[in-house]
Computed example of a mutant assay.
Amino acid sequence: MMRVIGLLVSACLAAAAHASEDIADQYPASALYSKPVEVIPNVWSAIGATAPPTYENSGHNNNLSFIVTGDGVIVVNGGAAHILAEALHEEIRKVTNQPVKLVIDENGQGHAMLGNSYWAEQGVPILAHADAAHEIDERGNQILEAMKRYNGDKAEGTFVAPPTDTFEDKRVIEMGDFHVEVLHLGPAHGPGDTQVWLPEQGLVIAGDMAFHERMLPIFEDTIVSDWLDTWETGFEALNATYVIPGHGHPTNMAQVRRYTHGYLTYLRGKIGEHLENGGDLADAYYVDQSPYAHLDTFEELATKNAGRVYEQMEFE
């Protein structure tokens, strides 16, 4: 059975165009950046662009996934705008007549939660981690205004719809044929990072815990040492066979380990050497990150990442 699933994953990846920042939109018939693909049986994902959010990609630069359980559909991520959530719902209806019974936000960022506005109008419950709910409450309107600036008329109908339910460490959902564990393994990329784990299928919808096709961003509230600890003590322990990352195509643990844990460890090592040599912040921006220069968004993020790691390590 697992071999069959593996072949399905390989086939869906081979059929999909690369989610590149150089491709503005690979599914022009929809507001979605790409048409959803079935990653394993009954688990689907619409893979977003590995570029910053733009009008051309409608802000669909993360993965919008859904699970067809047999007794309803679970959606993972509200999306960056009302228009994206509605477009995803149209695609779900092409796959199944089962109603959407739950939306799970992977964090409190715009691309995870602004589309909650659509789902709230449908009366669908929305689940998020308590820290993500706090971020939505504190910054939701600011995030909405930023989305309106790049999305123009595509922002129509979008409003801040907070989650209707929150959890702290774990929420177990039994729906249809699926046992679903909604997890907060610890601090990582940002407040309230959430992973959706299907232990019987060996698949994790990792959210922004894991990156591989684009460079990960280190935000002001991203503590890299904490992210590494959470990875090593929580995420690795899942021993997932299949990974749907927050951005980029479905893959495996080896790939996300290389480009998430590996990159963070590498960058801390380079900044550590720089500090030992008496280097300052101005030069820290330009430590060698060439092994990762092939990743999408490298030009936008590499120097920022180095500066933030320097600021974190300076007084360790």
Rank of each mutant, 00 (worst) to 15 (best):
L114Q: 01
T54Y: 00
N77W: 01
G192Y: 09
G307A: 00
H111T: 11
A51S: 13
I126F: 08
S10T: 04
K101V: 11
K35W: 00
A284M: 05
K170Q: 15
Y266H: 04
A293M: 00
A146R: 03
G307P: 00
V73A: 14
L216A: 14
E90Y: 05
P217V: 07
P99V: 14
E174G: 14
N239M: 05
N107F: 03
G70C: 13
H89G: 04
T297W: 01
P191L: 07
L275A: 07
G123R: 07
A112C: 10
G190C: 11
V103W: 03
P245H: 02
P41L: 02
L275I: 08
G115N: 08
L183H: 11
V287T: 15
A24S: 12
A155G: 15
H212D: 07
V43P: 09
V124A: 05
Y27R: 01
E56V: 05
A11S: 14
T230S: 10
L281P: 08
G207L: 11
A161E: 10
Q142Y: 03
M2Y: 06
D177S: 14
V180E: 13
D229H: 07
E276D: 14
N77A: 11
Y266G: 05
E145P: 08
M175D: 05
A49T: 05
K35E: 08
E220Q: 12
R268I: 04
I218A: 05
D22V: 15
H184P: 14
Q312D: 13
A81T: 09
D131P: 11
F66G: 09
A51Q: 07
A112G: 07
K304D: 01
T265D: 08
V256H: 15
L8H: 03
A206Y: 04
G207T: 11
A161Q: 10
A161G: 14
N116I: 01
V68N: 10
G278M: 02
E168F: 06
D221I: 06
S45C: 15
Q98M: 07
A81I: 08
A17W: 07
A19W: 02
V39Y: 02
Q26F: 10
P53G: 11
W231R: 01
V256W: 13
A210Y: 07
